[in-house]
Nucleic acid binder design. Structure first.
Lengths: 358, 358
DNA sequence: CTGTTAGCGCTTTCAC
DNA sequence: GTGAAAGCGCTAACAG
């Protein structure tokens, strides 16, 4: 008597089952569930009773197919949820998506561009309304209008290269330049840079900002203190360790993102006197560390929200021929902890304290 | 000439369009795409060409409807992606889901049980294969077999109460007990507890572990140092500040999760000498802090993986009448930083250093 | 007020 | 080897 659709060995009731039980047609059930005013209260109640009894739940998949909609979802392709930048981004996307009755289908991209392309078509096959992506590398062909089949994409944290699409960016250049300048103002001249692979836009841009600040200050011999690498805490730690082991090590470092900053912090915890650090991405414990610390702060959740907003804007048919938009999320530079060369244990509040033996 | 299905103002080609263009029937297209051996190579090529030309992408939504499957997705309902515990969990879930060709539909639950119930039915309407949830509170009626319509649920970090379901837990009790014991072994007698709301299972369980360790050591007068609260860094900071402001403050604190630990760290950074901290959840900077620190560590990513495995196991029809399983993720206690009362700046490696001025 | 017919995009079954 | 018909679960359009 039940519809043949099943999950595992358990069969799921369909509208037909409800109709049969209530002694009406499926159409009446459909209308009753939509609270169509033309249906008698009596009938409605009979239908509702049947729904209740069977534990019926409308199949939105079927419904969406019929009414010509997709999966009522947006796809989110990001690098690595373990990185707080991405998880906060996802949070923001989810927030806005939900306000519009959409769910988020998220997939971890990893660093593989081919894989990324596969994920895109997979999501499109599932008929997501659009895709939000923080793409690896700078080859964005798989995100062009063709491969995207007309579905909207929004780039986060990286601008589209060679194709037209909305994007929401962080002010990487200005933020990095300002933070670096602050280091310089504090008297540092030997400043290192723990960067991202230069193929990543944010990596290139942040390095540009670093260079700009250094040049303006007339500092030119920093190249031996510059490194690029995948963002990974352990790798960054090693890198920084090697920089600090140089004959004339830098007195300050700029870390290009939170992964590199954490690696730098780990490595820096071993040197004395502590090296000054600056870096992209604020973090929760920034205020309590025992070294001079400057961060470029911004709101990654808002980044996600904004991306979702741009995307949903395109989904509403009308905005199809609005030209590509570019939203810049503002950054601010925060100086934590000891300033001007006086360092406290724990960075703030309490006066200095002598630490005992090893 | 194209199918009427559209996204925005752009219409998406259907199999019929491909068929027409290739001069064959839809059935032939379907078979060609499935690489049916009975189709001529010639025909296949014509079909493929048409697919290429139109940019056709199979509608998996429609396909799944026809073949009686759901959305090929699993639902993930978690508290707060900004908490690294949840984001790492999500990472693990996504990893395993992808290995099985499923996507993850994630939604943030917040603290509202009614909302949670709504999210569950919403996901079920979308025909997810099952749901992984870290439920708030201990009222799990909305996750019982009835409301779940026979779809499997897996509880993470909290056991189901009053209903039968798989779950994967962390060894909250033993971990907390051991970590607390270590504090005691270090000579602390006045130990505080910054707990979670007792309605949350992990909160209750971790407090039990704390109590057990204290009792065994014959320490009984800790009640004035115990607090419960929502997990939120700022709130925890305030709470800890108030504990530390007591006439006879504790010399050590146990923080029930990473949120509370971060709050405690912020508050503790202001007192001198530093208070000793222990807490649930390891974190990346644990090793470099200038105070005695003990953490209960475990792998949240593995937690997610295991949850997904349990779930997918149920999805494969067969395992329908396997009794509820309970997987315990092991914990280990890590002692970071200064031991036995000698504190270093930055916690490890370098000898102590006097800090100057303000 | 309610039912019947048709069809969303795809695949299974049976025919040729 | 290929096609026509039927139907997955649902709803829009038209009957009555």
């Amino acid at each position: 008597m039940m519809g043949p659709a099943s999950r595992g060995s358990r069969s799921v009731p369909t509208m037909r089952d409800v109709a049969t039980l209530a002694g009406v047609s499926v159409m009446t059930v459909s209308r009753a569930l939509h609270d169509d005013p033309r249906i008698t209260d009596d009938t409605k109640n009979r239908v509702r009773a049947a729904v209740q009894q069977l534990g019926y739940l409308r199949n939105d998949t079927a419904r969406n197919l019929r009414i010509g909609r997709g999966a009522d979802a947006i796809g989110l392709i990001i690098g690595n949820l373990a990185n707080p930048f991405y998880s906060q981004l996802a949070l923001g996307v989810g927030e806005v998506a939900e306000q519009h009755g959409l769910t988020v289908m998220f997939v971890n991209a990893g660093r593989d561009v081919e894989r990324e392309a596969r994920l895109v078509t997979d999501l499109l096959s599932r008929r997501v309304e659009g895709i939000i992506i923080a793409p690896e590398g700078d080859d964005h062909r798989h995100l062009a209008a063709g491969p995207m089949r007309g579905a909207p994409v929004v780039f986060v944290a990286r601008p589209p290269s060679g194709i037209a699409a909305d994007c929401v960016l962080v002010d990487d250049f200005a933020g990095t330049k300002e933070a670096t300048s602050r280091l310089i103002k504090r008297g540092h001249t030997r400043i290192g840079f723990v960067g991202l692979p230069s193929t990543v836009w944010t990596g290139a841009e942040r390095f540009r900002g670093f260079q700009a600040a250094m040049s303006e200050a007339g500092l030119r011999s920093y190249k031996r203190y510059v490194r690029y690498q995948e963002s990974d805490v352990t790798a960054a730690e090693k890198t920084v360790r090697s920089i600090l082991a140089l004959a004339t090590p830098p007195t300050a470092l700029f870390a290009a993102n939170n992964r590199n900053m954490f690696g730098a912090l780990r490595a820096a915890s071993e040197v004395d006197p502590p090296i000054a650090l600056a870096g992209f991405d604020d973090f929760e414990l920034a205020g309590i560390l025992a070294l001079p610390l400057i961060v470029v702060a911004y709101d990654p959740v808002e980044l996600g929200r904004e991306a979702a907003r741009l995307l949903l804007d395109r989904v509403g048919a009308n905005a199809a021929d609005v030209p590509p938009r570019r939203v810049i999320i503002p950054t601010s530079v925060i100086e934590y902890g000891p300033v001007g060369g006086s360092y406290n244990l724990f960075g703030r509040g309490n006066g200095g304290r002598a630490a005992a033996g090893s």
